[in-house]
Amino acid sequence: MLNCKQTSLLVSQSLDRPLTWRERLAVRGHLLICVYCRRFTQQLKLIRRYMQGWQQQVTESSDIALSLAARERIAQQLDKFY
């Protein structure tokens, strides 16, 4: 039987690599009886979903821009080479 520590490690790895069938079975068995590890699993998936949403939000947000100073500095560098 897996304990919660071992389960949490495998649940995290399941987001990074395919688990072996033995590992999958063991994790599934533990999740059936452990509400905390079930929550943990849902929460990791939620975090992954939101991480992608967040980066997209930042990339599309029009109120984040290069500062004037940085823009100036980059323009000067471009002049040197172009």
Partner: peptide
Amino acid sequence: GDYLYRFALARLRDVHQAEDAVQETLL
């Protein structure tokens, strides 16, 4: 420039590193 900056900032989370990345990209 702003788009590239935001793209970099979202990943590096540091203003200076993001600015440098934009500059290096254009160069």
